[in-house]
């Protein structure tokens, strides 16, 4: 339970998620099993540039959006 109590609680695409303290955006994308080249990330309504994924640390309450391209007209 100690891990849970220390976890950083965020939301990803509207769903609550607990991640390891100090986790970076790169770490989150890796944990979710996504390919960084195929997604874009927004943190609290601000774009997170791909070049900064390793440097941006998640903090409690962060609202993360991860999007990709799908079929559309």
């Amino acid at each position: 339970m100690s891990v849970t109590s220390e976890a950083t609680r965020i939301t990803v695409n509207g769903e609550p998620l607990a991640v390891a303290p100090g986790m970076s955006v790169a770490g989150l994308i890796g944990q979710l099993g996504l390919d960084t080249r195929k997604v874009a990330v927004e943190r609290n309504m601000e774009i997170v540039p791909r070049s900064t994924y390793a440097d941006v640390r998640l903090t409690p309450g962060d609202a993360i959006e991860i999007v990709h391209f799908i079929g559309g007209g």
């Binding site: 874009a40 391209f69 559309g72």
Partner: peptide, 12 residues
Amino acid sequence: TVAVRRVNLSDR
């Protein structure tokens, strides 16, 4: 043309 949508986290 393509659309932009949330990644489906339940079916990665």
